[in-house]
């Protein structure tokens, strides 16, 4: 148990504004792993002292289960506005609004439950993919749909379908077929996905003929 009482003193010092820790200049050779860890520490410290979301008065994260609802409300509001714009046919404006929503959801403090972020971001990326597809931006659409499917694998047939559709539209039929088959395994024979697969296979057959 010598491990527990022993530690290696690190050459650390505070910056002049007392807000960050750096390697002291007296250190013989600055270690890269130490620098990386200090960067992570300073970043976390900064977030903890400047955030009000789910932080206890002692500046430590509170229980992950109790989270203030404000951010979730803001994200929902942005998504609803974006959905409205999309329905009105303002696809480019809708893309921008979804992007704003994504930024809002991404800025959620990392000590809050990851499951919430996955849910929010998964939905937003899937919707932005749709807004890209509406104006024929297949490349952006496919990347967003892939992001969404990666975030929420189950119960996210829309995202799977959208990437498959984008790949097909770009003529990447082999890739699209593979993607949709994987989607069918996960989503369990969704009708839209099966239809898309048939379409892809038809086009493949036509290409070979």
């Amino acid at each position: 148990m010598a491990e527990l009482t022993h530690f290696d003193m690190q050459p650390l010092q505070l910056t002049d504004d007392f807000r960050a820790v750096t390697i002291a200049p007296s250190a013989s050779k600055p270690s890269r792993s130490l620098q990386a860890e200090l960067d992570a520490l300073n970043d976390l410290h900064h977030k903890l002292i400047s955030s009000e979301e789910g932080v206890l008065p002692t500046r430590v994260p509170g229980p992950p289960a109790s989270i203030p609802p404000k951010r979730a409300q803001a994200v929902t509001k942005l998504r609803d506005q974006a959905n409205d714009l999309y329905r009105k046919g303002k696809h480019v404006e809708a893309q921008k609004m979804y992007t704003a929503g994504i930024e809002m959801a991404r800025a959620r403090p990392s000590w809050q439950p990851c499951a919430i972020s996955r849910e929010e971001l998964g939905g937003l990326y899937a919707n932005r993919a749709q807004a890209y597809m509406a104006v024929g931006q297949w490349a952006e659409g496919s990347v967003d749909a892939q992001t969404s499917a990666e975030l929420r694998k189950m119960g996210n047939a829309k995202a799977w379908w959208r990437r498959g559709k984008c790949l097909m539209e770009m003529g990447r039929l082999e890739e699209a077929g593979e993607w949709v088959r994987r989607a069918l395994e996960i989503e369990g024979g969704e009708a839209d996905l099966r239809e898309l697969l048939e379409d892809i296979e038809k086009r493949l057959a036509r290409g070979k003929a």
Partner: peptide, 24 residues
Amino acid sequence: QIIFQSANEILLNDRMKEQIDEIQ
């Protein structure tokens, strides 16, 4: 009682962000 819960969420969130950035 909660430090490891918070640590776990931070770990998961960091990994998720890496995953998103990789695709994006």
